[in-house]
Measured scan of single mutants.
Amino acid sequence: MDEEYDVIVLGTGLTECILSGIMSVNGKKVLHMDRNPYYGGESSSITPLEELYKRFQLLEGPPESMGRGRDWNVDLIPKFLMANGQLVKMLLYTEVTRYLDFKVVEGSFVYKGGKIYKVPSTETEALASNLMGMFEKRRFRKFLVFVANFDENDPKTFEGVDPQTTSMRDVYRKFDLGQDVIDFTGHALALYRTDDYLDQPCLETVNRIKLYSESLARYGKSPYLYPLYGLGELPQGFARLSAIYGGTYMLNKPVDDIIMENGKVVGVKSEGEVARCKQLICDPSYIPDRVRKAGQVIRIICILSHPIKNTNDANSCQIIIPQNQVNRKSDIYVCMISYAHNVAAQGKYIAIASTTVETTDPEKEVEPALELLEPIDQKFVAISDLYEPIDDGCESQVFCSCSYDATTHFETTCNDIKDIYKRMAGTAFDFENMKRKQNDVFGEAEQ
C-alpha cells in the first residue's frame, strides 16, 4: 500500500465507483478503499435476508415463511433508472452494461384523492384515464405537443414562451391547466419533490418532461429500469471497470487518518501504512468535519406477500404521492420490486416508501404510502441524515459526494458526479471521457 497514487477513493457507493471508473479509464492511477467488507456503502443491496434483520437490530431473524435468505437482495436506497437518463448513458458509454441485466418497471402510478391511478404512457391511455376530465385532456394534450416540439435552440418552437424568464406557473396558465393536472405534471412527469420549481424559469421543467417522455418511448410500460439482483450491482459494475483499467481495490480496510500538508491532501493512513495521493474522493462518512447536515430522509422497507392493490398485479412499480394531495411540502414515493428481479424469495415483494422528513414524527409522514401497502409482513425503518460538503474541495483537493436524496431516480446523483468531475479535472464533464479506450493495455477482449 505504500505507494504513490493520482487519486484515492474512500467508500464504494455508486458515486465513488463511477468516479473511480472514469478516473481509471482516463489513465489515472487509482486506489479504492472501503472500511466495509462489502461494496456499495449507503447504496448497497443487503443479502442474505438475515443480514438485513441484523442491521435493523431485529434479533429474532426472519421467519421460515420468508423463504431462503440467499434469495434476497434488499436495497437500502430505493431508486430506478430513467431509461433515457444520465446513468444509463454512463453505463452505455463505459460498457458496464455487459455486467448487468435490466428489466423495465411495469408501471408508474400517481395518488389522487386517496386512490392510485396509472400515469398514462400512451395517448390512448391518456384519453381513457380517469385522472382528468374530457376538456382537461384536450388542454393537457396541447401542452404535451408543445413540450414535444420544444427545442431550446429554435425560438420558432417557443410559442411566445421565453425559456429563460417565463416561469412554469405562467406556462401552466397559458395552457389553462387545472391544479390536479399541474400536480401530476410537476411531480409524476417532471419528478420534482416540491413546488419550488413553479416560480423558476420553465426551461428545466420542460426538459425534465421531455426526458420522461423519451424514456417512456424506449420501452413503453414506464420510463424506469431496474437491474436484476438489486442496485448493489451498479457500484460493483463500475468497480470492475476501474479494476480492468488498473485500479487497486481494498475492502474491509480501516481508514485511520487523512493526511494533510499546508491545507492540501497528501495521503491516507491505514493500519500503520500511508498511501500518498494528489486528490481524494470520499463519501460524507469519511470526513464528518468537512460536511454539513442538509436534512433527513425516511425510508421504510416493507416486505409483502402480495402485489400492491390497484396496480394490475404489477411485479414492479412506482407510486408518487404528490405533496398537495397530503398537505406536505415534499412528495412521498413508493418503489416496489419483487422475486421477478431476483431480489426476493418466490411470491414475495419489496416495497420501499420514502420521503424528505418535515416533522418530528417521520413515520407518521409516510402513513399515506403504508396504507396502500397493507397487509405488511415486516417493516424496517431507516431515518438517514443527508450531508453535503461545506466547500468545493478545490483548495484541499478533498472531494466529497452528497448523500443520496429522496428522489426515486439517479439524475441528482449523476449531477453530483459531473460536478465533482468538473472540480477535479478543471474541465466540464463530457460523456466521451467515459469511453473505454480501444486496444489499450487494460481493455477487455470482446465477449
Rank of each mutant, 00 (worst) to 15 (best):
Leu10Ala: 04
Thr15Ile: 12
Thr15Lys: 06
Leu19Pro: 02
Ser20Gln: 01
Ser24Phe: 02
Asn26Ser: 09
Lys28Gly: 09
Lys28Pro: 08
Lys29Arg: 09
Lys29Ser: 10
Lys29Met: 02
Val30Ser: 01
Leu31Ala: 09
His32Arg: 02
Arg35Gln: 08
Arg35Lys: 12
Tyr39Asn: 00
Ser44Met: 02
Ile46Phe: 06
Leu49Gln: 09
Tyr53His: 08
Ser65Thr: 10
Asp71Arg: 04
Asp71Asn: 07
Val74Tyr: 00
Pro78Thr: 00
Lys79Arg: 09
Glu95Gly: 06
Leu100Glu: 05
Ser108Phe: 02
Phe109Trp: 04
Val110Ile: 06
Tyr111Arg: 04
Lys112Glu: 10
Gly114Ile: 06
Lys118Cys: 02
Lys118Ala: 05
Val119Asn: 13
Val119Met: 05
Ala128Met: 09
Ser129Phe: 03
Leu131Met: 00
Lys137Val: 07
Asn149Ser: 09
Pro155Leu: 07
Gln164Tyr: 05
Ser167Met: 07
Ser167Gln: 06
Ser167Glu: 04
Asp170Tyr: 10
Tyr172Gly: 14
Lys174Thr: 10
Lys174Val: 14
Phe175Ser: 03
Gly178Glu: 06
Val181Asp: 02
His187Gln: 06
Leu189Ile: 13
Arg193Ile: 15
Gln200Leu: 14
Pro201Leu: 08
Leu203Val: 08
Arg218Lys: 12
Tyr219Gly: 15
Lys221Asp: 15
Ser222Asp: 15
Ser222Asn: 05
Tyr224His: 04
Tyr229Gln: 15
Gly230Ile: 15
Leu234Phe: 11
Phe238Ser: 02
Ile244Ser: 02
Met250Arg: 04
Asn252Phe: 15
Glu261Leu: 15
Val265Glu: 02
Gly272Ser: 06
Glu273Leu: 13
Leu280Arg: 01
Pro284Ser: 08
Ser285Lys: 15
Arg290Gly: 15
Val291Leu: 05
Lys293Ile: 12
Lys293Thr: 01
Val297Gly: 01
Leu304Cys: 05
Ile319Met: 09
Ile337Met: 11
Tyr339Asp: 14
His341Tyr: 10
Ala344Thr: 07
Ala345Glu: 14
Gly347Glu: 14
Ile352Gly: 01
Ile352Lys: 11
Thr359His: 14
Lys364Tyr: 15
Val366Glu: 00
Glu367Ala: 10
Glu367Lys: 07
Ala369Asp: 00
Leu372Gly: 03
Glu374Phe: 10
Val381Asp: 13
Pro389His: 00
Pro389Thr: 01
Asp392Asn: 08
Ala406Ile: 14
Ala406Glu: 15
Ala406Pro: 10
Thr407Pro: 01
Thr412Ser: 01
Thr413Asn: 04
Ile417Met: 02
Ile417Thr: 08
Lys418Leu: 02
Tyr421Phe: 02
Met424Val: 10
Phe429Ile: 06
Asp430Glu: 01
Glu432Cys: 06
Arg436Ser: 00
